[in-house]
Design a binder for these strands. Sequence first.
DNA 1: TGATTTGTTCAAAAAAGATTGAACAAACCT
DNA 2: AGGTTTGTTCAATCTTTTTTGAACAAATCA
Lengths: 172, 172
Amino acid sequence: MLTLVSEALDPAAAEIVDPLEQQVIDFFVDGTRVLGLPRSIGEIYGLLFISPSPLSLDDLVARLDISKGSASQGLRTLKTLGAIREAQNHGQRRTYYQPATDLKRLAGGFIKEQIRPHLESGRTKLDRLNASAESITDPGRREFARERIDKLETWVRKSSRILPALQKLLGS
Amino acid sequence: MLTLVSEALDPAAAEIVDPLEQQVIDFFVDGTRVLGLPRSIGEIYGLLFISPSPLSLDDLVARLDISKGSASQGLRTLKTLGAIREAQNHGQRRTYYQPATDLKRLAGGFIKEQIRPHLESGRTKLDRLNASAESITDPGRREFARERIDKLETWVRKSSRILPALQKLLGS
DNA sequence: TGATTTGTTCAAAAAAGATTGAACAAACCT
DNA sequence: AGGTTTGTTCAATCTTTTTTGAACAAATCA
């Protein structure tokens, strides 16, 4: 059992979080809440964010007191979002993670993974809506439905146009 | 029991949703999902959005098949968000609701109610973080923490600046 | 006044979502 | 080969959030 030795050598492997770390974690837990992501993801990203050296899955499990399953899934989601990357692991088998800290890039990943799919499904739904509207018999009702569906199309179009602009703004 | 009579007089009181209405509702249920709001709110807003005439709480209960409690709370949240308003009810006691359909205004309400509070709590957290960082003894560790906290401050500042810009973009 | 309508509140139930942990697979070592 | 380390998967469990519905209050009516 080498735990004590490795802890002594590497402070980053301490099996608790200090007060500062806890505060940063809380900051990000609140952030993931707004974004509709699970708490564990905020915890993982938060700890990586404030850690001077990269951390492994087992580090996260030990220090955040979460299960391997949670850590594994959380890391996968963060990778998909482009919010973390693997650190250079010199010959080591174990992989270590570092946070991406470029806000523009982070926003880009979130938009791509969490927003765009909904906009696309929205467009599909609008196609079907247009078809349904055509088969309304009452002319007044049909006209009203058209107007509202047109409005929805405008909304979706505007939202799509805004995402890149938004990302651009975050990069400056 | 006057239900049949009133239904015959006012199609908006029919106790089912037609296919078009259901599709619009589904569209908004997906929307509220992205925004992290409960499904019932998407249903209520969706039905109001596609209804040619204003609807009352009881209309919503009957047609969406949800409880009075859900409808009442959903309407309250939508009011708070500025997403609906009360229709002119000529001497009637019962209140009827109409959707706000101005995207800029809708976004404004959401930002004000759901985003800004988190940004403000973020600022508070940053103050405490700065205090904690000061009391780190190791200079290297303290310097690193400073850098990261500075980054967080930049993020919060940028986000705050972007919200009005975003709203502006949606208004054009 | 008492009966009816309209809407709110909130504790309990249901549903949705996140986390756990044990079984498994793959990579590495001796 | 067998043993160990590292990480993934997913059904079961736990937690959080939403919804329900019955009790209540306030307004209207007869």
